[in-house]
Structure formats: structure tokens, C-alpha cells
Design a protein around this nucleic acid. Structure first.
Lengths: 336, 336
DNA sequence: CTGAAAGCGCTAACAC
DNA sequence: GTGTTAGCGCTTTCAG
């Protein structure tokens, strides 16, 4: 920078002003400086700028995993939004590991990021988490917080209970009274609660023996477990519908159902939650409750950036995004 | 830091030494300093350290997208490896957009990262890319470079041609002579070339009219296109096997084949490439050629970190990882 | 509109 | 072992 200044016959200050596009530089001077920059191939050092301004133009995002369509879509959207505003994305994954989450939280809050976004993770116990959560030293927003969103922090999440409820109402409206549930419990218990509420409105109970657990956090093994569960369960008896807490599981269920020579949706309706890309392309296309991930990413990033630019902590409000039923081909009127 | 030093009755330097775990501090002094750090809740400013040392402990990763199982697995692996060594991951996606890629390359090379990893993207024209590629100012490694890996840069990639070849040999060994190809062209043409080579070894040609294009970059629309293609194509005629350039497409193909009342693998064998998580859980489980993504991530990260710690640019060597056939249930002896 | 000074928080040389 | 002195490259006062 000093070289550029010398070459253009100005001071570093003027170079700085030119680089940052401030309109305090005379056009003639500006041209000279720009020529010098070009000639020397100068490029400003962001770290130094960061030290001077106390801002890094970087947002940290702590996420359970990225090998899961739900989170990877959220990450991608967040990255895009940040990029549009000139921010970088520092990605950290927890993989369901408290210790990792804590480490990330600690290192990222050392002023190496301007703000922090943390996606929900069942294994995350906020009370155990270090400083930034407590002293709110830097803007912090939580998202996709399925279980017990804390009231003391800003949270942008989805009404997962309603997602379950909507799935339930959809099935109920189609006349289904005997449903089997396959859910990733306890992570997705809220979704099952919603389903239960929908059925309860019609006086239908969900017997405990029709609720099965896909005992793993990853959608893949959830799927696998679902397959096994359903296999053991067979014959389905009076069951006319299967509700799964996740599309990945639903996809597996459809395969197994077909494997038994039953048809979806003629014999059994299947509905999932999330609306992963494959859901629309399955055969039959999977009815599901779409979780507004992109909306969530937008709201969360918006809060974060506003907090950074205004220099104020984010108000601890809970934003609850509403999911939406997607009626596709895997659900039909109950044949019972 | 000054406060800590004052409280402990030492200088900043000593505090620095304690923080960085240097063994030049007396145990008694160290204890005092640590107490002061604890009391004041001091946490070092990484940006300042970065300015002083010229190192940020951050590696940039430019990737086409993260909403694709292949890349998301690579990203996750890279992140994990970096974290183990105390590095952070700055993630940037190109979404197949040259301009974005160029922007990222430019901003990331402003010394805000210690090294740069760039994953292959058909839309990326390296010749058009700015400085860091040319002047190799900071360690740069390319990975997953399917088309024309440049000889002037270090590249860790997979032998995609061999992947196609292995798939072809597998089919050929099972007696298949009439295969249909559905590939994401031109992105995956190398894979088709490999297949062609395998068949050619037996004097079998792949007529142009049996090669179909799934005309999109994203696996999902590839899948969709495959479905349409196969639907139009029906009946399959003498075809006994389908090769797809991607597992996602293969999964779609299996559904469509079944849709016609044909059985996999009894009537038609299906083989893909990649080994995405779902492949193992499909019904029947999908035979495929596994691409060693994790190995690739390991090699690439290794090179990068070595380059950083040794302060030397990475030698422009091409590392070609070998894929492996996974014989599963979707392929069987040809019935023809 | 431009220039000169001071300092962001830390580390790296030295000397003590 | 510990303290001292300079910066890292930039931005930000404040004068000119």
C-alpha cells in the first residue's frame, strides 16, 4: 500500500480512500492511484483491515452436518446471501458432538467472525456452552432449533409441531384412521406430537405400539431402520397410512411397502416431512410437509447482517416459520 | 492482553508465551498469568495474531455446490481434517458460475486464508482466473478435477475414466453386450469414454443412439431427465444393462425400469458411479463404482497443510485416486 | 480534498 | 526466564 501511495505520489490514506470507493478523492488523483494499484497488482490485506476496523466480513455457521439435504440446502442459501452482501462463510460442523460444538463456539467468538449462526442440534446443550451465548459479545442467532428454543436468544426456526400437525390433518382429511409412525426419536418427537394432535381432534388416538423409532440421527440409517421396522411389522394389518418424520425415511418406506406387493397410495398412503429434492422425483412422488429452509436462511442471515451493520445485539425474538403441505401422489383417500 | 499482563505483573510477551503454550515460562509465572486470564476472561484476538504472524489458520474451499452428496461429503471430510489440525474452513460455492468463482478466488487470496482448495467445476476456466493461480502467491490445490487437470498446478483427483472403465468391465464380465448409457454430458464424458474403452476391449461398440444425455448439472434434474429418456426409449429392446454416469441417475432409472414391469437385475442390470449413501440402501442395492472422496479430501488437505507449515508452494503433481467397483444387487449375469 | 500521526492486538526480535 | 522495542497493513483521528 505504501508502494502504491509512493508511486501515485499520495499517502496511504488516499489509497485507502480510493480502494474503499469513498467519494472524497479527486478524479484525477483517483485515476493516478488506480493506475498505480493496477501496475503493482496491489490487493488490500483484509486481515490488517480487520484489525483496524474490528470487522472481518465473515460470519460463522455452526451446523450439525452438511451431509444431510436439509442442512446442506440451508448452508448453501446462507452462503449465497452472505456473498451477496460481501460476507464470507466460515463453516463448522459439530457432527452431534458437544465438545466440538463448544470448541467451535469458543474459537469463533475470538473476534474472527462478525457474527455467529448456530443451527439446531439435538445434542447441543446451550446451558453448557461457553461465553458468547452468555455475554452476547457478538451477534448470535440460532436457527432450525427443533427442541426447546431458548427464550433468551434470537431464534429463527420452523414450526415443527405444525409440520406434524399438517401431515396428520392431511391424512385425517383423506379418511385415514389407522396410521403407523416411523420417526427419528427423540429428535423428532415434536413432529410426532403434532401428528398426534391432528388425530386427537378427531378423537383418534395413536397407540404406542404403532409408533416406531428409527434410532439414528442420520437420515440414511433412519431409512435403513425404517426398512427393518416395516419388514418386522409386516403384515401392516389395518394400517392405511404411514407417517414418517423425514422424507428420507418415507422414501425407504415406499420401497419396502412395494416390496410386499402393496401399492402406494392405493393400499397405503405415505407422507414425510421436509421436501427434500428427491421427494418430488420419487415414484409415486412423495406427499410431504415442506419445511421453509430457504426462508429460514433468509430471515436468519438478515437478522445477523442487520445486527452487524447496526452494531446492536439481536433482540431475543422467536421467529417461527410455517411449513406447508405438499399433496403429491403418495397419499390418497383411505380405502378402509 | 495488556490488562492480563498488568494483573499478573508481567509483560504482554509473557502472556503471549503462556497463551501459546511455549515452554519458556516459569511454572510460577505461568500460574499467575493463567489466573489473570481466567479472572479477566481474556481470549486472544485471532485477527491481531493473524496480522502479526501472517497466518490466519483458515483454509478456503471453493466448491461448485454443497447440495450434492459428492461435494457435501468432501466438504465435511475436509472440514473435519482441518479442524483436527486447528484450521478453520472458509467455504465458497460457485454454483457453476464463472464470475462467482473468479470473485471468490480474488477475495480469498487477499491473505485472508492460508491456503486454497478448489474443487472441480466444469464451468471453471482456469485460464480466465486471476492472480493466485498464476503467481501461486498462496498454496493452492485443485481436487475433483474431472476434465483436463492442469499440469501447472497440484491436483488431487480421481481417475474418472477408470471409473467408467471399471463399470464397463463389470457389465462386460457379466456378459452384457447391449448397454444403454445415460450420462450428464458433457460434464461426465470422461466416464463414458472409460465405459467405451472397456466394451471396445471385447470388440463391442457403443452406438451413438444408445447414449443419452441427462442435460443438467444437478443430479436431481439428471435423474428426472433420465426418467423421461427411458420412458421415451421404451421398450428397451435388446438392452440388458444401463450404465449411468451418476448414482442419482441410476436410482431414477431403477424406478422407471420397475415401472415398466421389468425387474432389476433379472431383466436389466443397472450400474452407477459415485457410491452415494442411498446407493447401498436402494432396493435392490445399487452396484456402482465408488469414488474415493474421503481419500481425496485427505490427500488434498494433507498437501495444503504441509505447504502451509513448510512455507513452500505445493509441487504441481497430479495425484490420481483409483475408484473401485462395488458389486451389489442391481447387476447380474446377462440373460441375453 | 489531502497529509501526518497514532494505534487496532498481537508477535518477533533482541537485550536484560 | 523476562522485559523492551518494533513492527504486521490498514484505518482513523485530526490538521493542513
Amino acid at each position: 500500500m505504501a508502494d502504491v501511495a509512493k508511486r501515485a505520489g499520495v499517502t496511504k490514506q488516499t489509497v485507502s480512500n480510493v480502494v474503499r470507493g469513498r467519494s472524497v478523492v479527486g478524479p484525477e488523483t483517483r485515476a493516478r492511484v488506480e493506475a498505480a494499484i493496477e501496475a503493482l497488482g496491489y490487493t488490500p490485506n483484509l486481515v490488517a483491515r480487520g484489525l483496524a476496523t474490528g470487522t472481518t466480513m465473515t460470519v460463522g455457521f455452526i451446523v450439525p452436518t452438511v451431509a444431510n439435504p436439509f442442512y446442506s440446502e440451508v448452508v448453501e442459501e446462507v452462503e449465497t446471501l452472505l456473498e451477496e452482501r460481501g460476507y464470507h462463510l466460515l463453516l463448522a460442523t459439530t457432527r452431534g458432538d458437544q465438545a466440538r460444538a463448544r470448541r467451535h463456539l469458543a474459537t469463533l467468538s475470538d473476534r474472527s467472525v462478525d457474527a455467529l449462526l448456530v443451527a439446531g442440534d439435538t445434542n447441543l446443550d446451550l446451558a453448557e456452552m461457553p461465553s458468547p451465548l452468555g455475554k452476547a459479545s457478538l451477534p448470535l442467532v440460532l436457527c432450525a432449533w427443533e427442541i426447546d428454543p431458548p427464550a433468551t436468544l434470537p431464534v429463527v426456526t420452523i414450526d415443527y409441531e405444525k409440520a406434524g400437525y399438517l401431515a396428520g390433518r392431511h391424512l385425517r382429511d383423506l379418511g385415514h384412521r389407522n396410521a403407523v409412525v416411523i420417526a427419528d426419536l427423540p429428535a423428532h418427537r415434536i413432529r410426532v406430537d403434532g401428528l398426534r394432535r391432528a388425530f386427537a381432534e378427531d378423537g383418534i388416538e395413536l397407540p404406542a405400539e404403532t409408533v416406531f423409532t428409527a434410532p439414528s440421527a442420520t437420515p440414511q440409517s433412519g431409512y435403513e431402520a425404517a426398512v427393518r421396522t416395516l419388514r418386522d411389522l409386516h403384515p401392516l394389518g389395518r394400517t392405511t397410512a404411514v407417517f414418517t418424520s423425514t422424507d428420507a425415511i418415507a422414501l425407504g418406506v415406499m420401497e419396502v411397502v412395494r416390496h410386499y406387493g402393496l401399492r402406494v397410495p392405493e393400499d397405503v398412503s405415505v407422507i414425510g416431512i421436509d421436501d427434500i429434492p428427491q421427494a418430488a422425483h420419487a415414484h409415486p412422488s412423495l406427499s410431504t410437509v415442506a419445511l421453509p429452509k430457504r426462508r429460514m436462511a433468509q430471515e436468519a442471515t438478515g437478522l445477523l447482517i442487520r445486527a452487524i451493520t447496526e452494531g446492536q445485539p439481536v433482540a431475543p425474538v422467536l421467529t417461527l416459520l410455517v411449513p406447508e403441505v405438499l399433496r403429491r401422489a403418495s397419499t390418497a383417500q383411505s380405502s378402509a
